[in-house]
Design a protein around this nucleic acid. Structure first.
Lengths: 189, 189
DNA sequence: CGCGCGATTGAGTAATTTCAAATCTAGTGG
DNA sequence: CCACTAGATTTGAAATTACTCAATCGCGCG
């Protein structure tokens, strides 16, 4: 019985699955619901799962000693999120993940991930492709921080992910771009 | 016959290998020498291999339309380097990799990488750990670009990789930190 | 000795931040 | 449904940071 077609769709962007294969995979996931302002992960905690976002919106951020938030990732429908460093190394989290909207997630433990990868070579490939995509996105982000000024980064983000600007408060967009909200606000012309 | 103990040492930081296993792996690598100012990779080219640095020093950079270089990575002894996006996707390179000192490298093709991963589960694990370490490093770099000013980034780099400052011309350090060389020069007090 | 490249220094300028105040908005309880 | 409040956004002005451009310095090498 297929319960989450969105997850299947996402995986099948990379590999092909039979109904049986997909159902088998899906059974390793557990659903989790979060309300606004609830934490999925808090600094210092252990991180047992990675999560696929069925619906909603979350932000991953680092909190400095001075209380400044720097946003590493926004996760919307169709995205994977967790503190990957903590998850893979089974180490304490170094970031917070916070729910911006009421959200539904599917969680997968590291053991189940490895089990699935071992049993289905295709899935191991899927996870590697996802992980590479993740690295490539980080590369692009480093580049944009090195080569572009704040206005250019803003325009690029607007073009790449217009939905961010509709759903996410401007102050978090600013914390993602690495500018003050005042500066971001002045760009809107 | 073991020819490159440095490579073995590097792999054995993560997994254990017998002599036979290591020699088998080593035989998939081919040595390559480069002189100063030679390119390992140029934008637009295809990228058939990833490289382990036996000795020397290389820089991976992006060239903007205005001719400005932004440095993504310095690779010294013991590091892996290539245009990973191009290598994994078998797509044209988007960066240049340039030799700063006479260097000796060991190249591994994607096919051989996958072959080794398939045949030795340990090595698949090694490659995943390396890839995660890579992601984590990029995460840290995004964070440092978001949270720190140029002076703080400079001090952090000096602490993390003091050898960069001895071997690499200041202008490239500046291009790595994302500041002008004049600004970098003014930090030295 | 002098060339050439990289590094440094100075001065003026542009971009962005900070702080403070004014405005707008969404969510809450009555 | 409305009024109210806390939070979010915008605007202004001053202060800071880093940049650009230009000139100078220092050193290795032919």
């Amino acid at each position: 019985m297929i319960k989450y077609p969105l997850l299947r769709q996402q995986i099948e962007r990379v590999i092909q699955l039979t109904d049986d294969e997909y159902v088998y995979i899906e059974n390793h996931f557990t659903e989790k619901k979060l309300r606004r302002h609830q934490f999925l992960v808090q600094e210092g905690e252990s991180v047992s799962k990675e999560y696929f976002v069925l619906e909603g919106c979350l932000k991953t951020y680092h909190l400095s000693n001075e209380g400044k938030e720097s946003i590493l990732q926004f996760a919307l429908e169709d995205w994977w999120t967790t503190d990957f460093e903590a998850y893979f190394k089974q180490a304490p989290a170094t970031v917070y993940i916070d729910c911006l909207e009421e959200s539904r997630l599917l969680g997968l433990t590291l053991d189940d991930r490895e089990k699935i990868s071992r049993e289905m070579h295709k899935m191991e490939h899927y996870f590697r492709v996802i992980s590479n995509a993740h690295s490539v996105a980080l590369h692009r982000r480093v580049l944009s921080l090195l080569t572009m000024d704040a206005k250019q980064r803003h325009d690029q983000l607007l073009e790449l992910y217009p939905s961010f600007f509709q759903r996410i408060p401007k102050k978090w967009i600013a914390a993602y771009l690495g500018v003050s909200r005042e500066t971001l606000s002045r760009f809107k012309k």
